[in-house]
Write a protein that binds this DNA or RNA. Structure first.
Lengths: 219, 219
DNA sequence: TGTACATCAGTGAACGCGCGTTCACTGATGTAC
DNA sequence: TGTACATCAGTGAACGCGCGTTCACTGATGTAC
């Protein structure tokens, strides 16, 4: 080590602990968002739930806003990786569009339910906050492209005249309804199936109906 | 008049002017919501744009929150009356489901574009504010019922196995996408048709596709 | 028709609360010799 | 291995700003006799 006084492998001191603290604060904020909106969550709340003091928040994040941005980044990263893995064409070799849609939509329903707090908050701000908006658009575009690869490889099942644009719009339809039903709705809302299973089933039917995909089974 | 000292037709003094002032304040608030969210609009802003002072707001409304509630009430009333008139079965005698959907959805796109400010704000709050949530649900349920009367009178055109629930869910799909595309999206968003005409067209296709209604013409 | 009074609509400076942000400090961890 | 010093992580009381809300006041409009 003493041989090269000017070169040294830099491994910032204690970085691990700091990183952990930041992560705990993000977890705390996300948990609090499940029950109230970000404006109603105070910095003191976030710190307290993480077992830390207010100052700790400011030593890890520039300000309250920056914390929310990091929360979105973390979420988007996770989503992107998940999409990459689960929509890999090899995993779906031999599957029909119906099977893909069934599973994808059931999964999306689940995710929206689990992380409704952050999602709701981020969606609400995305309109006013350009950075957040772009991050979300980027993610959606990414998912659209991955899904398109899968579905457009099975063109004979799609009757919509413009399959390329239809996949994208269809996915938007799905996201829109999930927002309506899960993020901004309550379980007993008029016209929304009462259980998540029923919701996923009906949403899948809508997606396939729009694309013009025939379903073998009927009910 | 002096004949009946205990009975008198009560017509509150100046009520007309007060009413006008309240209306002007509501207009002002709605106009300001077009560019920023309610939290960023100050009571002073609202008063100034209406050519009034801060105190005037508090002489017409209990507080800032109450003003927004009244704004929603006004909007809902207008919407309800509009729905009642335009979805009257007599007006659509002889029309097909395709024709009804075409016009309805084009109209909804227009309305969402015009009043995006208030709509966005109200939707955002509806999750946390029970009163607002109920008012919106009530309106949607009302529209669903009116539309159902129209569409279920033409059952031979619908292939969905449960037409009654399908109309409601289909309308939710439409509202969800309008939120996504117009209220929380920007014109060039990925997967969203760039013009309102194209958007309405594609949305109609989705609605009909879900219901299982055949369209005579194709493209 | 005039006078005196009551009520209503609206003003705007001043207040005060809540919450984000700062900062002087402590204790823990790492580094140099 | 011990000592002295530097840096990092975190504390929490105090600050201060912005904005909703109040309230003592003015002028206009309506009412009684």
């Amino acid at each position: 080590m003493t041989e090269h006084p000017h070169f040294r492998w830099v491994r910032p001191t204690q970085q691990a602990r700091s990183q952990q603290t930041a992560e705990r604060l993000l977890d705390s904020a996300e948990a609090l968002l499940a029950h109230k909106c970000f404006a109603d969550v105070t910095v003191a709340d976030i710190a307290a739930r993480a077992g830390l003091s207010v100052g700790a928040v400011y030593s890890r994040f520039r300000d309250k806003e920056a914390l929310l941005h990091r929360l979105q980044e973390r979420l988007v990263d996770e989503a992107q990786m998940t999409a990459e893995v689960t929509l890999d064409p090899e995993r779906w070799a031999g599957a029909s569009i119906v099977e893909i849609a069934d599973e994808l939509i059931a999964f999306l329903v689940e995710i929206h339910r689990e992380r409704s707090g952050v999602l709701r908050e981020i969606l609400g701000r995305a309109h006013a906050d350009a950075e957040m908006y772009e991050r979300r658009e980027h993610l959606i575009a990414h998912i659209c492209r991955l899904l398109s690869v899968l579905l457009l490889a099975r063109p004979e099942q799609i009757r919509h005249p413009h399959p390329e644009t239809a996949v994208d719009f269809g996915l938007r339809l799905v996201f829109g309804l999930l927002k309506e039903a899960i993020l901004f709705g309550t379980p007993r809302a008029y016209g929304i199936p009462p259980s998540d299973d029923a919701l996923a089933r009906e949403l899948t039917r809508a997606f396939l109906g729009y694309l013009g995909v025939e379903r073998a089974d009927a009910d």
